[in-house]
Design a protein around this nucleic acid. Structure first.
Lengths: 217, 217, 217, 217
DNA sequence: GATGAATGAGCGTTCATTCAT
DNA sequence: GATGAATGAACGCTCATTCAT
C-alpha cells in the first residue's frame, strides 16, 4: 500500500520534515495527556514551537496530525521489531526471545500504544486502511518467524493457528499498556513476560486428576 | 463500589428507564459510527426519538450518556455471564463451554464492545474507576471458575497464572470485536473459538524435532 | 394610574390571591439571593410549594412575577409610610420623626429595596411606568408633609426645593440599603439617621473663619 | 487593590485597547437599553463591529465585558474628578465648584452611570470588591477636600459628618441619572446643581414662626 | 384546578481554519 | 515562509412556556 501523503504548502522538503518532527513530538505529548479530541491545534502549534499559521503550512486538517503521529509510531515499533526479527534464526528459542523483546518494546512505548489504540478510530476513511495495513504487516512479521519454526519442524501448527498466535502475541504486547490499571498492579513486566510465554507455549497445565473417565465427552 | 447514579429531572421511574433505553439504543449506534466526541447531543436526542430538551431531562451532562451506555453494557455482559457461570460445575469441560459461551456473547455485542473499548477513557474521573471496577469483577468471575478447576485438581496453576489466564480470556473475547477487520476475514466465529480454546489449553504444539540441546528443557 | 392586572387562568379569586401570596413569598427570597434573571420559574414554583404547571395558571410570563413582587413591595412600603404620615401634624418636629421612621422602615426592608432597585429595570414597557408612578406617589407623600411645614410657616422653602428635598429623603432611605457595604461599616442605623437629619435641616456647618470678603482671591 | 486583569488571546496591546474600546462602546449602548442579562454576546460583537469569535479573542467570559465597562467608567470619572480636585485649594468656594463640576460630569455620563448602578451586582465575587473599592476611593476624594475645608476652619464638621456628606454628594451625582425620569422633568441640570448645593450647605431654611415655645411635646 | 414531561429557541463559548500582512 | 487576528459554524446546555393527562 502506498504511503498516504499529507500535503504541505511549503516546498522545502528538509523544512517539511523538520517542522513535522517538531509537530509530532509536541502532539504525542499532548495526545498522551488529553487525547486527540481534547487537544487543540493551537496547543499543538505552541508545543511544536511555532504559530498556528505555520502549523497549517505543513498540514491541511487537524486529522493530518493524528495520522502523522500514528504513522510515526507504527514506523518506530516496526523498525525496532524488524531489527530484532532480522537476527531471528527461526528457532523456538529465538522466537521466545523475540516475543519477550517485543513485549518490552511495547511496555517502553506504553503511552504511544494507548494513543494509537484509542485515537486511531478518529482517522478518516482514507487514512484508516493505511494504518490497519501497517498492523497487518507487523502481525505478518510474527507469522513469519512462527512459520519458520513450523518449517523447521520445531513447532507443529496449521497456518490458521500460526496466524491466530501471531494476533494473540500482538495483542498481549498491547495489553500491558491498555490494561495497565490491572496488570501492572499484579505483575512486574518480567513476570508478565515469563507467564505469558509459558502460557503461549504450554497452555494451561493439567492436574493429576484423570479427566477421561466420565466428563461430558 | 456504589453505583454511580445519573440524576434525572423527571420523577417517573418507569419513564426514566424507558427514555434512557431509547437514549442508549440511539447513542450506541451513533458512538459506533462516529465515536463519542463526534456525536452531538442533538443527534443522540434525534436518534432516541425526542428533543434535545427532553434528553437533558434524563441526564445532566453529555458524559452521562456515555456512562449510561457503558454501564448498561457491562451489566448485560455480566448478567449473561453470571447466569452461565452459575451452572458451571468447576470442571475443565464446563470451563471450556463457558469460555465459548462468553466468546459468543461478546461477538453478539460487538458494537457495544467496540464503543466500550474505545470510548471508556472519555469518562470522567469519577465514572472511570467505577467502570474499571466492573471489569475487575468480570475478570474475577473467570478467575473463580478457573480457580475451581485448580481446587478440583483438574488444572495445576498458580494464582498468578489463573489471574493472567482470566485476563487473556477476557481480552480474547473483546479481540473478536476490536480486531474484526483482521480476524473476521480469516475465521468464522466458531473457528475462532475452537482455535483459541485449543491454544488456551495446550499452547503451541511442539514438532517432532528435538529441541533439547540448549534451552530451558 | 390603573392597577396593571396580571391575568390568571384560574377563576377563583380567593385562590388566585392565595397562590400569588405563596408565589411572591418564594420569589422574594430567591430574588434577594440571586436576582431576577438568575432565578428560574421552576425554582419559584418549588419555593412557592407547587408545580411549574400550576405557576403558569396564575401568571402569563415570568416577568409577571417580578411585577407582582415589586408591586407588593411598594404597597407594603407605602402602606407603612402612609400610616405614619397620617398622624403627622405638619410640624418640623413631626417631620423629623417621620423621616426617621421611614429610614428605619427602609432599613427593615433592605433586601426588598435592593431587589426593587436592581431588578425594576427588567420590567417591560407597560409595567415600568406603573411602578415609577408608585414611586412618584411616595415622594409626593413627603412633598406633602414638607409642604405642610411650609404652609405652617415653620419652613421657608420654594416648591422646587420641597420637591428636591423629598427626593433626597427618599433616596437617603434607600441608600442605607444599596450602599450598605460602606455605610453599615461606618455607622449604626441610629447614627446614620441622626446625622442625615442634622444635615438635611442644617446643611454643613460653617466654621468661625470669615468667608465673606469675596471668593478665594 | 491590584487591577483585575482581563485576559486577551491577542498579543498586540494596541489592538487589544482598540478592540476593547469598540466593545465597551457597543456594550454600554446595549446594556443601557436592555441590561446586561438581556444583551447577548453576539449583539455586543455586532455592535462592536466584529464577529463573536473575535469578541472572545479579547475577553474570556461575558462578565468580563461588564467588568471592562464598569472599570472604564470608574476610571474616566475618577480621572476627571482627580484633575479637578487637584486644583482645589480647600476653600468652601472651591468645594462648591468641584461638586458642581462633579454633578455635570455625572450628567454627562448618565448612561454609563445607569449601567454601573444597575448592573454592578452582576459582577462575580472577584470583580465586585475591586469595583466597590474604586467607589470608596472616589468618595475618599470628596472626604479629603471637605476635610481640608474643616482644617482651614471654613467648615465645622466631625469626621463622621464629613464621610456622610461625601457619600451624599456622591449619590446625588448619580441621582440625576438614576432618577432622571422624575428629576429631569422638574429641573434643568443647572437648577438641580444650584438647589442641591444650597441644600447641602444650608439645609432646609427655617420659617419665621417660632419653633421653640412648645412644639408637639 | 393541578401536574410535570416535552419542547426548541436561544444562550455562552470553543476552535479548526483562513488569509492579509 | 511565518505570523496571528479574524471568522462563524457548531457545540453543550438551559429554561420559559405549553398542553395532554
Amino acid at each position: 500500500m502506498k504511503k498516504r501523503e499529507v500535503e504541505a504548502s511549503v516546498k522545502d522538503e528538509r523544512l517539511v520534515i523538520k517542522r513535522r518532527d517538531q509537530m509530532i513530538k509536541g502532539a504525542v505529548t499532548l495526545f498522551k495527556q488529553k487525547g486527540f479530541h481534547r487537544t487543540t491545534t493551537r496547543e499543538i502549534a505552541r508545543a511544536a514551537g511555532f504559530s498556528i499559521g505555520t502549523l497549517y503550512e505543513y498540514i491541511r486538517k487537524k486529522e493530518d496530525i493524528l495520522y502523522l503521529v500514528v504513522d510515526r509510531m507504527y514506523d518506530q515499533i516496526r523498525e525496532r521489531l524488524q531489527k530484532d526479527l532480522d537476527t531471528n534464526q527461526g528457532t523456538v528459542e529465538a522466537l521466545k526471545l523475540s516475543i519477550a523483546y517485543y513485549f518490552r518494546e511495547m511496555a517502553d512505548m506504553q503511552d504511544e500504544v494507548l494513543v494509537m489504540y484509542q485515537e486511531a478510530k478518529s482517522l478518516g476513511k482514507d487514512a484508516l486502511p493505511y494504518v490497519l495495513n501497517k498492523e497487518i504487516q507487523m502481525v505478518g512479521m510474527f507469522e513469519n518467524v512462527i512459520g519458520n519454526c513450523v518449517k523447521n519442524g520445531e513447532l507443529d501448527l496449521t497456518e490458521q493457528e500460526v496466524k491466530l498466535i501471531a494476533h494473540n502475541i500482538f495483542v498481549q504486547g498491547q495489553m500491558w499498556a491498555f490494561r495497565r490499571w490491572a496488570l501492572q498492579k499484579a505483575y512486574s513486566l518480567e513476570e508478565y513476560i515469563e507467564l505469558q510465554l509459558d502460557l503461549l507455549f504450554h497452555g494451561m497445565k493439567e492436574g493429576k486428576v484423570k479427566l477421561g473417565t466420565g466428563g461430558e465427552g
